[in-house]
């Protein structure tokens, strides 16, 4: 995928760039629009949580414990009488933060390493990529688990763990693109007129490396949200009373046969958020990867 994207890549840096074409493509894609709408909705909810939630997400009300959905409590209440609607909406804040920070950590470090490896090549390239091979030897959630073993449980440590375990994916893609760009005319040209490495990287390499990475990062947000919720679910992530979706599900699971709403709404919230981001990410890939363009 990286290689084929590189084939078209010079055009992304031009003043009238490929982005306009991508945007036109996205607009015509129904799935992309649905995904984007979901994500946008989510962001709006998260940003306006303070004003649109009917209750304080931490406010307990012992007299209203485990009430089914009603007009007062759209998603019902939990076992301490907290309003689940308010908690799920505040959970959007947490989940988006988890997704963005994890991807920021993983993508930030991964892209820098990848460009260094691809642009510089040689021993450095080899060293970086062997370390990435090592990280990739721990499947799925396992590396995050191992990192949490070192850092200890907690939501912030989960973000670090998820971020670190996603580094190799960004590094691989960034390296592939950077490698293909290194000997392209416009880069050689820039070097010939005496541009420094930093300038070349910033001005020519980075913009052209980004498109496939944007796809990766978008999908990465979705998987970071899923992984973090999973870690909270097994008791290594967010701690109550934080309204993290996975943590709410954990608290609610013992009530699953008497209070369906307790697990259903946070579960749906995770699924819909991840679905929206995935739809958007898929469409972005289709738009950015000319090979799959139909």
């Amino acid at each position: 995928m990286a290689g084929s994207a590189a084939g078209e890549i010079g055009r992304f840096s031009g003043p009238r760039s490929q982005w306009a074409i991508v945007w036109r493509q996205l607009r015509l894609n129904r799935a992309a629009m649905i995904g984007a709408a979901l994500v946008l909705f989510e962001i709006v909810l998260a940003l306006t949580a303070r004003w649109i939630t009917p209750y304080d997400p931490f406010d307990q009300n012992p007299l209203a414990a485990l009430q089914p959905p009603s007009r007062e409590h759209l998603f019902g209440t939990d076992d301490t009488g907290r309003d689940l609607f308010s908690r799920v909406i505040y959970g959007a804040q947490i989940s988006l933060r988890v997704g963005l920070i994890s991807v920021g950590i993983g993508g930030g470090i991964g892209i820098v390493l990848g460009i260094i490896a691809g642009y510089r090549g040689g021993v450095l390239d080899n060293a970086i990529m062997r370390v990435m091979d090592l990280l990739l030897a721990f499947p799925g959630i396992l590396l995050a688990l191992a990192i949490i073993a070192i850092l200890g449980p907690g939501l912030f440590n989960v973000m670090i763990a998820v971020g670190i375990s996603s580094i190799p994916y960004y590094t691989r893609v960034a390296r592939g693109s950077a490698l293909a760009l290194r000997d392209r005319e416009f880069v050689l040209g820039a070097r010939a007129i005496g541009c420094g490495d930093a300038h070349i990287t910033w001005r020519y390499i980075l913009p052209n490396v980004l498109p496939p990475l944007i796809v990766l990062a978008t999908l990465g947000i979705a998987s970071a949200i899923l992984t973090a919720a999973g870690l909270s679910f097994i008791g290594l992530g967010a701690v109550p009373p934080a309204p993290e979706w996975g943590a709410i599900l954990t608290l609610g699971r013992k009530y699953i046969n008497q209070a369906w709403w307790y697990t259903t709404f946070p579960g749906l919230a995770i699924a819909i958020t991840v679905l929206g981001i995935n739809m958007l990410g898929d469409a972005l890939r289709d738009a950015l990867d000319p090979r799959l363009r139909r």
Binding site: F58, Q60, P62, D79, T80, G81, P240, P241, L251
Partner: peptide
């Protein structure tokens, strides 16, 4: 459910 109510 025997910890959080204390917080409340």
């Amino acid at each position: 459910g025997q910890i959080e109510p204390i917080d409340g």
